[in-house]
Design a binder for these strands. Sequence first.
DNA 1: GACATTCATATCTCTGGAGATATGAATGTG
DNA 2: CACATTCATATCTCCAGAGATATGAATGTC
Lengths: 306, 306
Amino acid sequence: MMSVLPELDPRLLRAFVVVAQELHFSRAAERLGIAQPPLSQQIRRLEDKIGYPLFRRGTRRVELTEAGRVLLDVANTLFEQMTYGVNAVRRAGRGEVGRLRIGFPTSLALSVIPGAVRRYREQYPEVVLELHELATARQVEALHGGTIDVGFLREPLSHPTFGLETLYAEPILVAIGRDHMLARLPGIPLGSLAMEDFILFRRSIGSELYDRIIRLCHGHGFVPQIAQEVEDWQTIAALVGAGLGIALVPASITRLQLDDVVYRPLDPPNVSTNVVMCWRKDKLAPVVDRFLEIARACLSSGRPAA
Amino acid sequence: MMSVLPELDPRLLRAFVVVAQELHFSRAAERLGIAQPPLSQQIRRLEDKIGYPLFRRGTRRVELTEAGRVLLDVANTLFEQMTYGVNAVRRAGRGEVGRLRIGFPTSLALSVIPGAVRRYREQYPEVVLELHELATARQVEALHGGTIDVGFLREPLSHPTFGLETLYAEPILVAIGRDHMLARLPGIPLGSLAMEDFILFRRSIGSELYDRIIRLCHGHGFVPQIAQEVEDWQTIAALVGAGLGIALVPASITRLQLDDVVYRPLDPPNVSTNVVMCWRKDKLAPVVDRFLEIARACLSSGRPAA
DNA sequence: GACATTCATATCTCTGGAGATATGAATGTG
DNA sequence: CACATTCATATCTCCAGAGATATGAATGTC
């Protein structure tokens, strides 16, 4: 009886293929590790499902009908598909395929991100990577909304559904004009900046660092004079080079080398921002786990340029 | 436990697809017409087989993992393949695909064969046709050896394993030079050919007809004078046209019209050869059955040119 | 014609899994 | 915080089908 749903039981197909190879029920049964009658029954069930005979049986010889020949092809194709399919699914289960969306702030575009991303891409070439440059606040939103899978932030945020991991502490340096008097010092005391003009990263974009700097100055008894608020690090460096003021910047920014700008550590140098990585704990996606591993490994061996 | 053989039970896949569509176990279970717990078990079995989770379940929401997304693709592909495959097998079972090898003698190349083959090809375009021009004896061998599926012969052969069917009786005509005295008669008495030179189809190729003609002459009290034995009908017609003799030919040969040759019925005209079709009864291939049907239909409606 | 081979049929046992019900655990919602 | 929702777990029943054995039927071989 032709069933409506053409669901071919792989078990029966397996048996069929063996019989088709042997063209001999008893031998096929032996190969399958069962007795001959049950095998005959299985083939019969398959024939019933298809609706047409698959073998032409004489007592002395067994041969495939045309339908059987076609089914042999079909069966092989199906098994291939299954093998291929199951492998693909398992690769996905292992986090080797899929999609990974990473958020990061501008200040890390030059340090952690490139290295970790490159390594990850080498190891998991089949994962489609999306890189989103997002300010801290936006990253938190994006993590909540499920728009990104992993975010990189300065300074922690704590939330029960977020996994959080501090990658490393990045010293804060002073970016200062090469000709500036203070540039002669090997380390610059924070207090000596009381009268300087500060160039800051716009607070609406990077509130963490902004507030950190203001607090730092307060801690040293002065309110920083803010000369400019700008939107990217290149501009900050350019303005410092043009002599419009000084800036407190995370160490990774030293990658931006301009002729008129030098970077000096604070004195004492114990001021730093924490670079943290965070992700949603609830959706345990293997792609994310694999990326976290790589990011950790990356940061433990080769620290980003300080 | 990852099983070694990646045999995906279509039943489980079906359930999986429904859950993946609904993203809700209870609703999916309802759609499948079963309760929720058994459905959960089925999904679990599938996950065990794959080795990785397919869904991320909260109490309040269900979503596909990456592995699940991949499996959804795989499942759909497999179902497509199955549907397509089963259809292909059934078409083969119905005799709509496959291969059909037909044997026929030269003398029928101009009559039955072209019409039947054309019709068959129109109705079953997916059957690969092989046409083998074979002398009678060769056809019998070929049928036995399984080299051809259907043969066309003049005069029956009887054998228990062969199906046999007389298609029609074809009158035997006299092919004679246009200028020949006897050509003036509307019908030629066999006896009047006693002194003529006969041109015959070589016996090794078409023994049936050869012997038939010899016997005919004997029946009329003379032994035919054999001028030539040749290998094809064109040559016979040409030699008759060139005045080298006369020939007794099946009616279908009138398709070969040469200026110097005319065809006259015998007088009385009750001499004919039977055109029979035969095939192996043991291998009941549907392609053969379908062809036999067409051939019969073809011969009952439009008789070949007589 | 006796024999051997080979597939089909009949019959029995036994188990895996389908399905149901009842219940527990987790987690959003008002 | 009580409640509702939803999925997982535990447990039970029941049966299709896997497998075995014994036997029959067909057919090629000596």
